[in-house]
Amino acid sequence: MNASQRPVPLSQIMPPLVLGGAGFSHQVHQNPNATQTLKVLQRAFQLGLRAIDTSAYYHPSEILLGEALSHPDMRNRYSRDQYLLMTKVGRITATEFDYSSAWVRKSVLRSLERLHTPYLDVVFCHDVEFVPEAEVMEAIGVLLEMVHEGLIKYIGISGYRIDVLAQIAQRARTEFGRPLDIIQNWAQMTLQNDRLAREGLNAFREAGVTVVCNSSPLAIGLLRANGVPVGDLGDFHPAPLGLRVAVKKVADYLDQIGESLAELALRHAMRRAQAFSSPDFRIATITGITSVAEVDENLRTAQEVLQVSSEPRWLWNDEAARLGDGDIIREKKDQLLCDQVHRILGEWLDYCFPSPGDDWDVTTKKPIVASL
């Protein structure tokens, strides 16, 4: 995967599961550190999970990942062409965005330095619904320049609003004469919200996109037994109280029958991704991982869904998935569980988080301050 070579279609190399770098940030972890990151990457790479998605916004994720990837134990074992690195530009803090040409270029160069890499496999414009569309087009133009310079291989956009992502993808194809390579949408191909499958995939495919990343299959940690994650920055999760209460009822129900909400949610998201994937249009699931135990748990869950082989490189090579009798039984059981979960969620099924919300001015890219 030398960046100077003409890249193959991203759909041919994107694995079904991607390690999310937000787990190494202050947003979702109380003490992100180099030791934790190195141990997670060592275990993930050993088991074949060798695609990473992060962002400059997930501070200090890029720095920690770069230190881990350049550690002798990693550098001497894995060459750069044995893993994928994806990051993002444009979002700086919770309330600060900069999509200008100068900042996009500076941000990419900084990411290259932080990650200790000569090129990036994918760069996304981060949370595009928060800024004017014209500014997104400007940023995409800069990323395309950097593709020609050999610093980036593939480009895309990320965000929550499916309609905004589809509109920008169509406009980008028209204005630049080529489609975006990839789109990332979060928390909308989950056990709680399936709008990405119904409202996004066809629109993205029509815009020429060949890879879609479904990030946050647990809805930023909402779909688990122990509540939303609280990092150094406090409780930032957008789920309202009613949804949190409904999810707690789901978790309690599943616990009573010996099932894990987090594992069921991940299996469900990966099955949905697999159902809509084809050789020329791939859906990848990005899962947040903060510990070696979570690596093992997520890989075990993914393996149940994708295939029965225990070959360590199965996620990287993405060999043909196949189901054994036990997997078919598990899938049928899961469908019954999902049906019950949906009944418990009731009115909260397919609920969408407001993004950016009524308190945000897209034109000024600033919060709206209520007048007294």
Rank of each mutant, 00 (worst) to 15 (best):
I283K: 01
R271Y: 00
S291K: 00
Q307C: 11
E294G: 07
P238D: 08
M270F: 03
A320M: 15
V308D: 13
R271S: 02
A302Y: 00
S291F: 00
A284E: 04
L266E: 12
E297M: 14
V245E: 12
S291E: 08
D296I: 12
V245G: 03
L243N: 02
L266Y: 12
E263I: 12
Q303W: 07
A320L: 14
E294H: 12
A246Q: 01
V247A: 02
R300E: 10
E259D: 06
P238G: 06
H268N: 11
V250K: 00
I286P: 00
A275F: 13
E259H: 09
R300A: 11
R313I: 10
L261E: 08
L299P: 03
Q256H: 09
G324Y: 05
R272I: 11
Q274I: 10
R282S: 09
L233R: 14
L261F: 04
E294I: 02
D327G: 13
L264C: 11
A284Y: 05
P279S: 07
L261I: 07
S260H: 08
G234I: 03
R282T: 13
E263N: 11
D280I: 07
D296M: 11
A239P: 03
S277E: 14
A239N: 01
T287L: 01
D325E: 15
V292W: 01
I283H: 08
S260Y: 02
E263H: 10
T290G: 06
N298E: 08
Q303M: 07
E297L: 09
S260C: 06
H268E: 11
D327Q: 14
L306H: 15
L323A: 14
A251M: 03
Q256N: 14
A284N: 04
L241K: 12
L266N: 08
R282E: 11
R313F: 09
A269R: 02
F281V: 12
P279L: 07
N298M: 05
V308S: 13
V305P: 03
E259M: 10
T287P: 04
A293R: 06
A293V: 11
G258M: 07
A273T: 04
T290M: 09
E297H: 08
G288D: 06
G258T: 07
L233C: 09
T287R: 00
L264K: 01
I283N: 05
G258I: 04
A273Y: 04
P238C: 08
G258Q: 00
H237R: 05
L266P: 05
D296T: 09
R244D: 04
R322W: 15
L261G: 07
I286D: 07
A321R: 13
E263F: 04
R267I: 05
D327K: 11
R271L: 03
E294W: 03
W316P: 08
P312G: 06
G242K: 00
R313S: 15
N317Q: 15
W314A: 15
T290V: 07
M270Q: 12
K249L: 08
A321D: 12
D327L: 05
Q256D: 12
L254A: 01
W316K: 03
K248I: 01
R272L: 12
A251N: 04
D318F: 12
G324F: 02
Q274M: 11
G326N: 13
E304L: 11
F281N: 13
M270T: 05
I257A: 03
L233I: 10
P312T: 07
